[in-house]
């Protein structure tokens, strides 16, 4: 089990709209949210939290380009330099016949590369166990979490008060 060495104060909400409202409220009050956990991708959550757009698709483009260049380049090298053979009277460099494999390799590199990148940057993978705050977060609870590791008692009270006032059904702290 991995650990963040953090003390976390969190509130569980029963509905995603209550949670979204609370997030907007917290941001208006300049409270720093550590993370938000939801059972499914909630529409509008990125905007409410002010998350920047994921750049995963850029990496996908780069991997795909590598796959395309590698596939086309390799076949060209084999058939024009390494071992030229005439197949069915076609020229050595018969580009149209290279397209299907080039396409497949583009897709393969882009997909595999993006998936590996995704799991790496999210800190996930087979056998990895990240700490969770509550088992019901993957069921029907929506969680807003604050990092209170170095927070003063007054700050913590303020956060607790905020969670209470914004409709959190349950409030708790946990060391993770």
């Amino acid at each position: 089990m991995k650990t963040y060495n953090k003390e976390v104060l969190y509130g569980l909400y029963n509905d995603e709209h209550d949670m979204l409202k609370a997030i907007r409220e917290a941001r208006a009050q300049h409270l720093e949210i550590w993370d938000v956990f939801t059972p499914f991708p909630v529409h509008g959550l990125d905007n409410a939290l002010g998350l920047t757009e994921s750049r995963l698709h850029i990496s996908g483009f780069i991997y795909g380009a590598i796959g395309a260049i590698f596939g086309f380049g390799f076949m060209t090298w084999v058939f024009t330099r390494d071992w030229p053979i005439i197949f069915g009277g076609k020229p050595y460099f018969s580009a149209p016949a290279f397209i299907p494999i080039t396409f497949e390799l583009t897709v393969l590199f882009a997909s595999v590369g993006m998936v590996v990148t995704f799991y790496t940057i999210c800190g996930m993978g087979p056998g990895i166990l990240n700490p969770t705050l509550d088992d019901r977060i993957t069921d029907d609870k929506f969680c807003i979490a604050f990092d209170t590791t170095n927070a003063s008692e007054a700050d913590e009270d303020k956060l607790r008060h905020f969670l209470n006032g914004s409709g959190a059904a349950e409030i708790d702290t946990k060391n993770i």
């Binding site: 993370d35 956990f37 909630v42 990125d46 998936v115 940057i121 977060i137 993957t138």
Partner: peptide
């Protein structure tokens, strides 16, 4: 489950990944 937590950023990347795939 690969250590899935349901963090907002992970969901955002997950959706982006699903769309591109």
């Amino acid at each position: 489950s690969f250590g899935w937590t349901g963090s907002a950023k992970h969901w955002q990347r997950w959706e982006s990944l699903s769309l591109i795939l």
